[in-house]
């Protein structure tokens, strides 16, 4: 499984998609941050202003708006379709899946490597863009990330988004006949909540849970718990179920 993952992570096709996502997201995040003229109001002594400033700064950490989500979903769908369907289309799979490992293990390692790539392709440019804009206020950034507990929530945020996108795409990839169908299908499914304005599905539900957790709760631990709590069903349970179904399907379906 480890070898399989390593192999996927070094695959040139995957890496081209990875770079596409990385650069596009980085640019979008950056331009989003330059547009940023966030205002906040608070009254109280200077310490309150400082902590509110750090909190507001933490809330400006790049997240997935409509534009960003489009790129993100596209990258995720491309990665997963390439990994899970393309090799089957090109018959390379025959050799991979004939190794003495169970099918689901191969699929799982592919899904995991897709997650790693997508996670890196979003988190790294997010931090890069943030530092390229706000690199001159290290104290406040530190305060926001650690004192206000944004780091944990932010990592979880991306992990959840990645899990969702990869598991939706994986399920579609397992169900579809070829790479093209898989790509189209996953993009459609991933984009549907945005077009239909479904607030109860990701990305809206995760975004809202994050925002709510960090604006209504005071303590970092509470914030993380509230965040997870708010996005649990569609941000965590649903993707896990979908991924599980995808794995079970991979066992049923023939490799071809």
């Amino acid at each position: 499984m480890k070898i399989q993952m390593k192999w996927e992570l070094e695959d040139p096709y995957n890496l081209i998609v990875f770079m596409f996502g990385f650069i596009m997201l980085g640019i979008t995040f950056f331009s989003g941050l330059t547009r940023n003229d966030v205002v906040f109001m608070v009254s109280g002594p200077d310490e309150i202003i400082v902590s509110e400033s750090a909190k507001t700064l933490g809330l400006t950490l790049p997240r997935l708006g409509t534009e960003e989500y489009t790129i993100f979903a596209l990258t995720g769908a491309l990665l997963v379709s390439l990994m899970m369907r393309y090799d089957r289309d090109t018959r390379v799979a025959k050799s991979v899946y004939s190794l003495p490992v169970r099918n689901y293990s191969v699929v799982l390692s592919k899904a995991l490597s897709a997650m790693v790539l997508l996670f890196l392709a979003s988190l790294l440019p997010a931090f890069l863009a943030f530092v390229y804009i706000h690199g001159d206020i290290p104290d406040l950034i530190g305060r926001a990330l650690f004192g206000e507990g944004f780091l944990a929530g932010y990592l979880i945020y991306w992990a959840m988004m990645v899990l969702y996108v990869v598991s939706v795409s994986a399920l579609v990839a397992m169900l579809s006949p070829n790479t093209f169908a898989s790509l189209l299908g996953s993009i459609t499914l991933l984009y549907a909540p945005l077009v239909l304005k479904l607030r109860s599905l990701p990305p809206a539900v995760i975004n809202e849970a994050f925002f709510k957790a960090y604006t209504t709760q005071f303590y970092p631990a509470d914030r993380v718990v509230t965040f997870l709590d708010g996005s649990f069903y569609t941000g965590l349970l649903l993707p896990v179920v979908m991924l599980g179904v995808a794995l079970i399907l991979s066992e049923w379906r023939d490799v071809s």
Partner: peptide, 9 residues
């Protein structure tokens, strides 16, 4: 859920 998927596999 994760356990169920694992067992199923």
């Amino acid at each position: 859920t994760i356990g169920a998927i694992y067992i199923a596999l």
